[in-house]
């Protein structure tokens, strides 16, 4: 009996602790989220059925879902989705890479960091779409202006978080690395960035969200294709059902990006180990 219990305890102990916890938390979180969405949907459906608002203003969730299903069968929707997805992807890649680079630069050259940080923080607090008239003059009006603005929006939280994370590394880590003869590149990639990992990942998460917001907002203003453009178009032409179908598509896209990011985070935080 004692032997069996010991074996069982050893088997449990052999499983990675993080995986066991993650499964439990992940399942709870997924169920809670699903329940919340269903409850909200039912409330909206009931309010709509009771005539608390006009279908022309806010269609019932069942109508929106049916419209979303119909949109999935149209080429126009996929064209818009492809355009937005490409812009968001490019913005994430450019913005987060530049942000990471800037964060490392500010850490390595603290004077440069001190000079730039107040501006970045100020920029962070301002809706960058306000700089649209400047963007018109500097980069023109095309898909690149959408990508540039969304990249800038993604870059700022990434740079700030990376800097904060790197500045927070206990000095003993770096001293130890130097004492065993690690070069600058090794220190950066094997010691500093992993130590600042939680902050870098938080910056990445915010960068991804901001790039989506930036791309959709700019499309809303200036583009001639993409999900943001189509929502604006349908808003102006008063086609509420289709408009909400597209808004739902943006929510789905946001969820897909967030879930993908969680996967990336998991891989990065475990170093690819299962």
């Amino acid at each position: 009996m004692t032997l069996r219990l010991t074996e069982r305890a050893e088997t449990v102990a052999r499983q990675p602790v993080s995986r066991r916890r993650w499964l439990g938390k992940g399942a709870t979180s997924a169920v809670a989220t699903a329940v919340l969405i269903v409850v909200l949907g039912l409330i909206f459906q009931a309010c709509s059925a009771l005539g608390l608002w006009s279908e022309a203003d806010v269609p019932a969730p069942s109508t929106v879902l049916a419209e979303f299903g119909r949109l999935l069968g149209t080429g126009e929707f996929w064209g818009d989705l492809g355009r937005t997805a490409l812009e968001v992807l490019l913005s994430i890649v450019f913005g987060c890479t530049l942000g990471l680079f800037a964060g490392v630069l500010f850490w390595k050259l603290p004077r440069v960091g001190r000079a730039f940080e107040p501006y970045l923080v100020s920029f962070y607090a301002v809706p960058l779409v306000l700089f649209y008239p400047v963007m018109i003059v500097l980069v023109g009006i095309n898909a690149s202006s959408v990508v540039i603005l969304a990249s800038v929006m993604a870059m700022i939280p990434m740079a700030l978080n990376t800097t904060v994370g790197l500045n927070g590394i206990p000095p003993v880590y770096l001293k130890l690395a130097r004492s065993v003869g690690a070069g600058p590149r090794r220190i950066l990639f094997s010691i500093a960035l992993p130590a600042a990992g939680p902050f870098v990942l938080a910056g990445l998460r915010m960068g991804v969200v901001y790039s989506l917001i930036g791309a959709i907002a700019m499309e809303f203003t200036t583009a001639q294709a993409g999900l943001g453009y189509r929502i604006r178009y349908l808003y102006e032409t008063f086609e509420s059902e289709q408009m909400f179908g597209y808004i739902f598509a943006v929510l789905v896209l946001s969820c897909v990006i967030t879930l993908s990011l969680q996967g990336v985070e998991r891989v990065l935080s475990t170093g690819g180990r299962r």
């Binding site: 649209y132 008239p133 018109i136 023109g140 009006i141 203003t221 200036t222 583009a223 001639q224 453009y229």
Partner: peptide, 17 residues
């Protein structure tokens, strides 16, 4: 090209965009 209001259009035209 979608640009925005009259002011934004004039800015874009002056910038040659």
């Amino acid at each position: 090209q979608a640009v925005g209001g009259m002011g934004d259009n004039w800015t874009a035209a002056r910038a040659g965009k």
